[in-house]
């Protein structure tokens, strides 16, 4: 067939409706780069392209744009695995942040607990010490000795609970110094009975807990010693001597 005979079929071909022998003939022309038929087909393709303009418009879903964009940039929308990886990563970061947060909170609470426990323990000790002091002072078997001149006060000796020293007008101590109580047995060396510091008004209450043998005691003394106390009293620093006697 000649090009002139085929030209009436260009449009039908572009429309996709051509079949049979005419289609074979036209393909043969196009296959050998027939200029007339190639140009005619292009013209007909333009006509068919225009037919899209009479199609009733329909609104494409918005997700379709993302799907199309993902064709050119697979990372734009994120594949299922990418989204899963992002999810797992976010989850891990979330858990890590929460772990750090709860660990820090745990540490802070632990520190607060330690401070509280230290205060509680200290208060318990204070209560125990006060109870001991109270028991000592209220012991019917206790012996009381007063002392006076300058620093004055009293010493209460309980055979069961120990020795309590209560003083007033005690001189303020020089830096690095402390008051130290001594229990002086009859015919024996003074035994250290603890150190203490007076309050700002010069008063002090010092208790040396534990059973004592009142009968063997000659006196209770207080000296000023270096901080931390010493094993034997410094003779010229003994400021109070309360003879226990019989």
């Amino acid at each position: 067939m000649t090009c002139d005979e085929l030209m009436d079929d260009y449009g039908t071909y572009a429309l996709g409706a051509l079949d049979g022998a005419a289609l074979d003939e036209l393909r043969e022309h196009l296959g050998r780069q027939c200029e007339n038929c190639t140009a005619g087909i292009r013209e007909a393709e333009g006509l068919v392209a225009r037919m899209a303009l009479v199609v009733k418009p329909a609104d494409a879903p918005k997700r379709l744009r993302k799907r199309v964009m993902a064709l050119a940039d697979p990372h734009a929308g994120g594949s299922r695995w990418t989204r899963a990886l992002v999810f797992v990563t976010v989850l891990c970061v979330f858990l890590a942040v929460h772990s750090v947060f709860f660990w820090m909170r745990h540490e802070a609470m632990h520190r607060e607990f330690n401070v509280f426990w230290a205060k509680y323990t200290q208060q318990q000790s204070e209560v125990a010490r006060l109870n001991e002091t109270l028991a000592l002072l209220e012991d019917p078997a206790a012996k009381e000795v007063t002392f006076g001149k300058g620093a004055r006060g009293r010493v209460v000796i309980s055979p069961k609970h120990g020795v309590a020293f209560s003083g007033q007008n005690l001189a303020a101590l020089a830096p690095g110094k402390t008051y130290e109580m001594w229990i002086i047995p009859k015919g024996g060396k003074p035994v250290p009975a603890g150190t203490f510091e007076p309050s700002v008004d010069g008063s002090a209450l010092h208790v040396q807990a534990g059973p004592v043998d009142v009968a063997s005691m000659a006196a209770v003394a207080v000296s000023i010693e270096k901080e931390g106390g010493v094993a034997s009293p410094t003779a010229d620093q003994i400021i109070i001597v309360a003879p226990v006697g019989q």
Partner: peptide, 29 residues
């Protein structure tokens, strides 16, 4: 971005044309 621009220019018309033929939104997508 060129793909996005191509879609913005011809996506609706292509979808309308395909939907007019297949009459199924999922298939058209």
């Amino acid at each position: 971005q060129a793909m996005a621009d191509l879609y913005d220019r011809y996506g609706r018309l292509a979808y309308s044309l395909i939907y007019a033929v297949v009459r199924d939104t999922g298939v058209a997508e």
